[in-house]
Simulated scan of single mutants.
Amino acid sequence: MTTTRRDLLKFGALAAASAALPGWAKPSKPIKRAAKPLNILILGGTGFTGPFQVNYALARGHKVTLFNRGKRPSPEWPSAVEQLFGDRNTGDLKSLQGRKWDVCIDNPTSLPFWVRDAGKVLKGNVGHYLFISTISVYADGSKQGITEDAPLAVYEGKDAMAETQDSLRADIEHLYGPLKALSEAEAHKQFGKRVTIVRPGYIVGPRDETDRFTYWPHRVAQGGEMLVPGDGSDPMQIIDGRDLGEWMIRLAETGTLGTFNAVGPAKPLSTTAMLKGCERVTGKKPTYTHVSPEFLEEKKVELPIWVSSKSGPYAGYGAVSNTRAMAAGLTYRPFDTTVTDLLAWFRSQPAERQATLRAGITREQEAALLKEWHAKL
């Protein structure tokens, strides 16, 4: 079947929970120091995109403090980073009390009470609160060109503040978007006008433990006959985790407020264009066999990130508007760079990690599907 919002939520949650692994790629150009150094608090910071924020902030001359449970290994930072410990699940935020920061970036929150509790400690002690949300907050994902002003998903449970990580995981398809939407509302309640909401879609690149995008260049690199969904014209939206993380720091530097869809690339990326880009990087050119969305639906096959623009209730998730974000300074590194660095990172992982991708279909499944497809023709 086509990628659904369930797929987006499932892999989004996995990405948020990914372990901190090596993979910081040094920038090709020197990073200029910011005009005004900031004292930045990052809630989380050792997951997928957090280390990109930290490294960029340090390169720009900012002071960085991390707050988390300390259960993941921290990368080796290029300069000093203050580490505070606590547990937002239990309300243990004592290490944040009596401290002031210019900016707070909230990376991991999916539960409204996390924002409420952070507000109780940080309100009046941070000048700017930036919250990482998701495009899953939208009530209707079927429309093309979803803007930041579209209606949001409605929570239908009994008590949003009583929801926990366990209850979220148990019904992530129905709870993730609504609880993120309520977390956004709670951010405004706690921190007033000095709030920035950033709504990413699929975050990809080095350090991505979900393999949701890795599946495509990895498969292209293997060559041979390759199953391709649809006719190749369907849109794909991805953003390199480094582009997202670095933009968050620039938003903090400029004090930019508002709500933004953090999706990419700058220009529409079709399935065919994505595959051609993977060819350029890998030097391989598979033989593509295009199969219909209806066939994949019939066979209950899920292919990551790809969304048919002609079918499915979440077809618009491949074409969310990023106009406002680009106007606010969101930039994108070349697609080929993302693919090159992603594959380099993936191939640096242990052999057992590379052996089984966490998204997509196996070569055996693909061969069986292709055989069935050819038999239908």
Rank of each mutant, 00 (worst) to 15 (best):
G360S: 08
T323K: 15
W77L: 04
E163N: 08
H374S: 14
K180V: 02
E364I: 12
V103P: 13
R219M: 09
K143C: 03
V291S: 07
S110V: 14
A325E: 11
A266R: 14
P178V: 03
T109I: 05
Q83Y: 09
F295Q: 02
Q354Y: 00
W101L: 00
F295Y: 13
F346R: 11
R6P: 02
K32V: 09
T337D: 14
G127H: 15
G91K: 08
P108Q: 07
K143Y: 07
G145L: 07
G329K: 03
G192Q: 06
K284F: 01
R219I: 08
K158A: 14
T331M: 04
P334N: 07
T4M: 08
L369V: 03
T356Y: 12
A355H: 08
A20S: 15
N125Q: 15
L296V: 05
A57N: 03
T362Q: 11
T338D: 03
R242D: 13
G177Q: 02
A328L: 01
A355L: 12
L251E: 12
K180T: 04
T331Q: 14
H290V: 06
E209N: 13
G145D: 09
E163M: 06
P334A: 13
R250P: 11
A266S: 12
A35Y: 05
K376N: 05
T65L: 04
V126H: 09
L179D: 09
M274H: 09
I146D: 04
E209V: 11
N39A: 02
S321T: 08
Y129S: 00
G245L: 09
D106G: 01
N261M: 07
D171G: 07
R99V: 10
K300S: 15
A80N: 12
K284D: 01
F67K: 02
E366T: 07
A139Y: 07
T259W: 06
R219Q: 05
L369R: 14
P151R: 05
D231S: 13
T4P: 00
N261A: 09
G360I: 03
S233I: 04
